[in-house]
Amino acid sequence: MEGLGKIFLFNSAVVGIAVLILYEALYRLALLLPKLGIAPRFRVLCGICGAFLAHVAEIWLFAFAYYLLLQIGGSGSLGGNFDGSILDCSYFSFSNYTSLGYGDIEPFGHIRFLAGLEALTGLILIGWTASFMYIEMQKFWVAGKGRR
């Protein structure tokens, strides 16, 4: 039971950090975007780029978490077309976070819980980003009406 408790705490910390990354990114974008002296459509583009970078950082956070768990051992494994590298961990993380799930790398053991949490976290955070960008687009496109 002690091992499961550690896995739970580790997984909770990784998810918490991922949420915090996006929260901070969207908060900073909300402050920065209105101050940019550029056309509203380019502000939206800057917002998309900022959100994209935040999601990439979150995906790499999960990739490093997988890699760490695999190096420590005792938490399960990733099997299939997997060579144990950080790049394969990031590939698995990218496909898992976006719920694309090619299926060529499969989690086994306790690491499956982190994989499931990553998919759920990605779904929620991508939805949060879409909502944020919709609100920002509403602000800029109404404010910038008539401006090209």
Rank of each mutant, 00 (worst) to 15 (best):
L87P: 00
I17M: 08
L87C: 00
A115P: 04
L4C: 01
P34Q: 06
S90C: 09
G122F: 10
G80C: 04
Y66E: 01
P107V: 04
A51H: 03
L53F: 13
G144F: 04
Q138T: 06
K35T: 00
G146E: 07
G116H: 01
R147K: 10
L125P: 05
P40A: 10
F62V: 11
V15E: 12
E58P: 00
I124A: 15
F62G: 11
I105M: 12
L53C: 09
L78P: 05
I111F: 04
S90L: 13
G16C: 09
L61R: 05
H55F: 10
L70W: 05
V44G: 08
L20T: 11
L120T: 12
L31Q: 12
N11S: 11
Y134C: 10
G47T: 11
G73F: 09
A25P: 09
V15R: 09
A143Y: 10
K6T: 07
S85E: 08
I7H: 10
G16M: 09
L26Q: 15
G127F: 13
H110W: 10
L45R: 15
H110V: 02
I21P: 00
F8T: 09
F52G: 01
G73V: 08
M133K: 13
V56H: 03
M1I: 00
A30S: 15
Y102W: 02
G122I: 09
L69K: 02
A57L: 13
D88Q: 05
L36T: 00
I86G: 00
A18G: 12
Y67E: 11
V142L: 15
K6D: 05
S90T: 11
V56P: 00
V14A: 06
V44N: 09
K35G: 00
Y27K: 15
D88W: 05
A115F: 04
G3K: 14
S95F: 13
W141P: 00
V56C: 05
G76T: 08
A54Q: 03
E106K: 09
P34R: 03
L87G: 01
A30C: 01
A18C: 10
L31V: 06
D88H: 12
F42T: 05
V19G: 04
R112G: 09
A39S: 15
D83F: 03
R147Y: 07
G3E: 12
L61G: 06
V56R: 12
Y134Q: 14
F92H: 06
E24P: 00
I17H: 05
A30E: 15
S99E: 05
Q71D: 03
A13V: 01
L45N: 12
G146S: 06
M1A: 02
Q138H: 08
I111C: 05
I38C: 07
N81K: 12
L68H: 09
L114P: 01
L114E: 07
I17R: 11
A30I: 03
M133E: 15
